[in-house]
Write a protein that binds this DNA or RNA. Sequence first.
DNA 1: TAGGCCATCTGGTCCT
DNA 2: AGGACCAGATGGCCTA
Length: 350
Amino acid sequence: MMTKPYGKPGDVTELVSSLGWIEEDLSSQDGEQTPEIGDPYNLNRRNSRIPMDLGSEDMEEEEEEEDGECGLDGEKAPKRRGPKKKKMTKARIERFRARRVKANARERTRMHGLNDALDNLRRVMPCYSKTQKLSKIETLRLARNYIWALSEVLENGQSPESNGFLETLCKGLSQPTSNLVAGCIQLGPTAMLLTKLDEKSGPLEAVGAQQTHTLSFPSPGLPSPPYGSLEASHLLHLKGFKGPTYENPSPNECSNGTPPYDGPLTPPLSISGNFALKQEPDTERNYTPHPTHPAHYLSSHHYPASSMAVLPQGHALFPGSRYDLPLDITFESFATPHIVSSQMGSIYNE
DNA sequence: TAGGCCATCTGGTCCT
DNA sequence: AGGACCAGATGGCCTA
């Protein structure tokens, strides 16, 4: 679908004068402006965007006026063919304006719905923060990568704590987002491992076991970030899951015929080093299963302020990372692969 | 100040 | 005819 381009500057000058009635009329909508923006309908800057061709009766008066008129260069405009249209009456102007206002409202609502859906998507991403939202495009990219990474976990048994999992997640993401994801991923498994170990042993033993973790961050004594919860939906959608039966395409191929994904691989800057925080025993570890998590697979941790540089806006900058992690960041969905790994048997057996 | 991101308005197109 | 969807245009806000 091609959108008709707006008129050239010359056209604008010409039309602004001839369409003064529209400008004047639309400007009267000021009373309908929404409070968020001073000029929500852009009425004050729409002069150059007055419809070049309303394509309907709404422009009849303007078309009539132009009949026989000379253009800017003095050339005679071609005589308009077809039936003479009706005059633009006040009532017609009103109808046009009402239609436009209604359409604008619908469009706003539609976009809000789209944004709500994006927010919902953000919430199930490996890292979610209310204060530091992923951009729309990064949300979509990460979602795509996340689905891909999870499918590899399911199909190949790839560890969600492996660098491969992380690299898949970060494919095509901007460097800041990659760092954010890396930080989440690298911090996330700790709590979950601890949680699992806690089921068999005490926290201290779990801490000791953590030291053999393949990834070198969140150290045993390292305070964990505030973990979020794994929403019930993350488990529910696995119910009845019978395992992958599809052919897993290459990351750069799309089986549905869509163009290949050729986003550049942007490995996180700090897979193993930059997030190495202080490796001190954390006597302040405050491990509590997240209340909203039905299976208590995740826990809720909080970083003591001493363990990281705390930025003014409540963000914690991880050493070596360009990306500061909001303190309210959650890792709710990151647990999914672990859930999948640990529950695979029971899920399959259902 | 430039660039990224976003919300909004807008007209065109398609569909019901 | 009217609504949904789309993409272009524009200005505001924020950050490096």
